[in-house]
């Protein structure tokens, strides 16, 4: 990229943004922009590359840097993935994680949509404060909640069941989704709802027929973010689940695949790679939604 990019660099006159006015020479631009950018890319992506390379290396190659170039795979193998899928409960963990993520996403999305609609559209007295309180809930991190939550989960008899996770994940999903959806509802013209009211629609009809269809992009943003966050969650899953077959992927890889002092790096990396793929693929389809919800949530 370093060598090729300056060529298709458009003339400065046509450039937009701050660059428009600086009369940098091309070499200087390569040194100050492209070289650092490529360094950033290499550093940010290297762990994934290393994960991928390690996954497909046979064990002998993995620990022998003298005869093989460690950055490349000489004799690619699927044995690590095979071992992971057929000798461990990995498939089971994937299904559990998927179920928990989908369950908690649906639950949080439902409650967030209703809450955001009430706060932004029904406009009752004190609705601003309710919104602020929900937002404040986002500032309470899981690391200070998991100990008392473990007690709560235990008392409810949910310990070591997927429901412990499906019910506790909304504590960090609902604030985020509600905040995102409030912002989204705000962008939908209120006049549309007024028209519907005049035409005799009930409030629930308005929500179902007018507001929700218009808020679909916001719903997708909130949904994929909720899904990703629940897929990535670690501390609750570590604290509330104890039996091996009910664990989620991140927890299971760390607690079930790491045994004793000998680490099977090949299958560990295969596990990490396969566990990352669902969110990475999901992400690829919805990049724009991710970026807009991430930046929108901060700008709100």
């Amino acid at each position: 990229m370093t060598d090729a990019t300056p060529v298709d660099d458009t003339p400065v006159v046509e450039a937009e943004g701050p660059q428009l006015l600086s009369w940098d020479s091309r070499t200087r631009r390569v040194v100050t922009v492209y070289v650092p950018l490529v360094c950033f890319l290499i550093i940010l992506l290297f762990p994934f590359y290393w994960m991928g390379v390690t996954t497909f290396k046979p064990n002998s190659e993995l620990i022998n840097y003298k005869d093989n170039n460690p950055f490349w795979i000489n004799s690619p193998t699927l044995s690590n993935i095979k071992k992971l899928l057929f000798e461990t409960d990995y498939a089971h963990w994937l299904v559990t994680t998927m179920g928990v993520a989908i369950g908690s996403t649906i639950l949080s999305l439902l409650s967030s949509v209703l809450a955001a609609y009430a706060i932004q559209r029904l406009r009752f007295r004190g609705s601003d404060y309710v919104g602020l309180a929900i937002y404040a809930a986002y500032l309470v991190p899981p690391s200070i909640l998991f100990i008392p939550l473990a007690q709560v989960v235990y008392q409810l008899g949910l310990f070591d069941t997927p429901f412990a996770l499906i019910l506790t994940y909304p504590t960090f999903l609902v604030p985020f989704c509600t905040w995102l959806l409030i912002g989204y509802f705000k962008s939908i013209p209120y006049e549309l709802e007024e028209c519907a009211l005049i035409d005799g629609a009930s409030r629930l009809q308005i929500l179902r027929r007018i507001t929700l269809p218009l808020a679909v992009p916001g719903l997708i943003s909130a949904g994929i973010f909720a899904f990703t966050l629940s897929w990535n969650e670690f501390i609750y899953a570590l604290a509330f689940i104890s039996s091996s077959e009910k664990k989620t992927v991140p927890v299971a890889i760390l607690t079930e695949l790491v045994q004793g002092d000998v680490y099977h790096w090949g299958s560990l990396m295969a596990g990490a790679l396969l566990g990352s793929l669902p969110v990475a693929i999901f992400y690829m389809f919805f990049v724009e939604y991710y970026v807009s919800s991430l930046t929108g949530a901060v700008k709100e």
Binding site: F48, W231, V251, I253, L254, G271, A272, V279
Partner: peptide, 9 residues
Amino acid sequence: VPTVLSAIA
């Protein structure tokens, strides 16, 4: 990507 998985890398 899940933090734990990149942490393992």
